[in-house]
Amino acid sequence: MKISDRGVLEVAEHEGIVPGPYRDSVGVWTWGVGHTAAAGGPNPAQMPRGMPVDVDAAVLDALALFDVDLDKYEARVNRAVKVPLKQHQFDALVSFDFNTGGIFAAKLTQALNRGDMSGNGFMGWLKPKEIIKRRKAEQALFRTGDYDANGDSIPIWRVDEHGRLRGILKTISGAELQRLMQEAGSSRKVAAKPSQQHWFAALVAAILGVFRK
């Protein structure tokens, strides 16, 4: 399985975009959209500190790497989970593993593979305390298909030369994120906005109505 467009937005909104290396809440050097050395590829601890001169270019680089990282975490979930999943369940698990790297060790995965689809195991990974809101959102997504994020508020953060976040530079919408990912070379499908989908559906219905008369 592959993560859906809505799943991509969910992960991005949870993670935010940081165009310079920073230390996360447990001190791990991180860059871009939640990228750490554990994911392979560039090591944020070895990157130049502080904000880049060209923020827009750095954001595109971060989104290109985000696309690569998503491929890796999709593959991990596909290997770890042996039971059929609905799309929203798969998306929730990719978000969980993207953040924790724990899909192979989690009791959540063990329960799923036994046929327990309750999703209770999401609440087994609650440190640091700042992550509790995300775990609840992932659990709710797994259980109900409610994509809690997906708003117009994906933050791009400022960071200083010591790896500390210094507030939000700006926010971008989900549609803008998807456009930028395509510009960065992503082949992931970009879904139309709901309003565009509704307009197209109405047009098709009107044309069919003419031919039925």
Rank of each mutant, 00 (worst) to 15 (best):
D67V: 02
A184W: 05
H35Y: 05
W31F: 15
K133H: 14
I131Q: 13
D71K: 13
L70C: 00
E130F: 02
R114L: 13
G50Y: 01
D54C: 09
G40I: 09
D146Y: 00
W157V: 04
R6K: 11
S173V: 14
P19Y: 14
D160A: 08
G209R: 12
R135F: 05
R158W: 15
L63D: 03
G174Q: 12
G209K: 03
G20R: 11
G163M: 10
L141P: 02
A64L: 03
R188H: 13
R76C: 04
H162K: 10
V94A: 10
K2R: 15
M51E: 11
V204A: 15
R114E: 14
I207D: 07
E10M: 13
A111F: 05
T30P: 04
D67Y: 00
G151H: 13
V94G: 13
S195H: 10
D24T: 09
A202P: 00
D116E: 02
G27Q: 09
A39M: 15
L112Q: 07
I103V: 06
M47A: 04
V55G: 14
K82Q: 08
Q89T: 07
N150F: 12
G145Q: 06
G209W: 12
K136W: 01
K133M: 04
P48I: 09
V68N: 09
R23N: 02
M51K: 12
L93R: 07
D56G: 13
K170L: 11
W157S: 14
N113E: 03
A206Q: 11
G101V: 09
T144E: 07
G151Q: 12
F211C: 13
G32T: 13
T109I: 02
R76A: 13
W31V: 11
D24H: 06
M123E: 02
P19E: 07
P19C: 15
A206K: 04
G32D: 14
K189E: 09
L70F: 00
V68A: 11
L85P: 00
P44V: 13
R134A: 00
R23L: 01
S173P: 10
M51D: 15
L63Y: 02
A12K: 01
F211K: 03
E10C: 12
R164N: 12
L63R: 08
H198R: 08
P48D: 08
V210I: 06
A106W: 04
G145Y: 05
R158P: 06
I168C: 13
G102D: 06
A175S: 03
A62K: 03
E138C: 03
I156F: 06
E13C: 10
Y73S: 15
A57V: 06
A175Q: 12
V190T: 06
V18P: 07
A75Y: 01
W157Y: 15
L180S: 05
D54H: 09
G20P: 05
L93H: 15
K170W: 11
Q197H: 01
L63P: 04
F90E: 06
D71P: 00
G115Q: 05
K82S: 10
R166S: 13
Y147T: 06
G124F: 02
A58D: 07
I103H: 06
P21T: 03
P155Q: 14
K2E: 08
K72R: 15
L126P: 01
P84G: 02
T144Y: 04
D97S: 10
